[in-house]
Amino acid sequence: MIEGRTYRVAEAPSLRVQVANLGLACCALEVESAVRMGLLIPEAESDGPAERTVLLVSGTVTEPLVPVVEAAVLSVPGASVMAFGACASTGGPYWDAPTVVNGVDRVAPVDRYVPGCPPRPDALIDALVGRSVVDGGSS
């Protein structure tokens, strides 16, 4: 249900991104896409200690997943929590569903909200380092 993959941001290698994809996360594909584009690099032992860790949470938070989200946040103490995609940010298109919790912030404090359904890989990098890496860009 949760993948514990860790990456470094290509243009800010001291920034570690730990990915927690919930059960229903089409946004996971965008993280994969960021890896393929070389924007995120799988973490290697030679990378040395990270200055900062961002826990990227993507996917729809349904009632049964609440303890899973809590556990994911607790498993990376001191990490900034990033809600990646509309579902993780607010419940997204499922905001009216009786079984959906409207966003990760109902479970744990969120430091960065990345909108998009799903967000583009360059939106992820922009949210991580604070500016667009692809000017115009096509996908």
Partner: peptide
């Protein structure tokens, strides 16, 4: 199977 909280009526 899926629901945790009690729903008054089937969703």
């Amino acid at each position: 199977l899926i629901l945790r909280s009690v729903h008054e009526r089937p969703p």
